[in-house]
């Protein structure tokens, strides 16, 4: 009997090539199928989450700043810029529940992703309402003490 490490029967270069090819093809197919999830979906959901909360925080900061300097008799008007799409999706900034829930919601219009940001209780003394859609870039926040 030939010693084990010198026994080269049953070894075929062609067979090895086919086996390795099959393994690699299978691996490649698996990667390809999950590539969309790994490379597109997960990063875009992370980006969306971050950007939504960025925009929510921006709104909350601006509202709090306005609240701090709001005149007894008079008005404030300010404009702000938001990106039209975030991770390829349009969205809406919704402050309609601000007075009861003390939150601003940023809602994506195509997926059901929602991020809520608190506005530190200022809505109980200053009524906040309105909805801004991302289809235009420039929006306004207005305050009028007479209304």
């Amino acid at each position: 009997m030939i010693p084990l490490h010198q026994d080269e029967r049953a070894v075929s270069i062609t067979m090895g090539y086919i086996m390795f090819s099959a393994i690699f093809i299978a691996f490649f197919v698996i990667v390809l199928m999950s590539a969309d999830e790994i490379l597109v979906d997960r990063p875009s959901s992370v980006v969306m989450e971050n950007e939504f909360s960025d925009i929510g925080n921006m709104m909350a900061t601006t509202l709090t700043d306005m609240y701090l300097i709001a005149p007894d008799n008079g008005r404030i008007d300010t404009s702000y810029t938001i990106p039209i799409t975030i991770a390829g999706e349009y969205y809406a900034i919704n402050a309609d529940t601000a007075t009861t829930d003390q939150i601003i919601e940023i809602v994506s219009s195509s997926s059901d992703r929602t991020v809520s940001v608190t506005i530190s209780g200022i809505a109980s003394t200053m009524a906040i309402n309105g909805t801004a859609l991302s289809s235009s870039q420039i929006h306004r926040i207005s305050y009028d003490s007479r209304k």
Binding site: I55, N57, M58, T62, D65, L68, Y80, T81, I82, P83
Partner: peptide, 22 residues
């Protein structure tokens, strides 16, 4: 790009200028 969009409006709001003025 992310850094630009997230913080511009809050920084642009002239809270201190208006407060100083009054």
């Amino acid at each position: 790009v992310t850094g630009y969009y997230s913080s511009n409006a809050a920084l642009e709001f002239p809270k201190e200028q208006i407060r100083d003025l009054t």
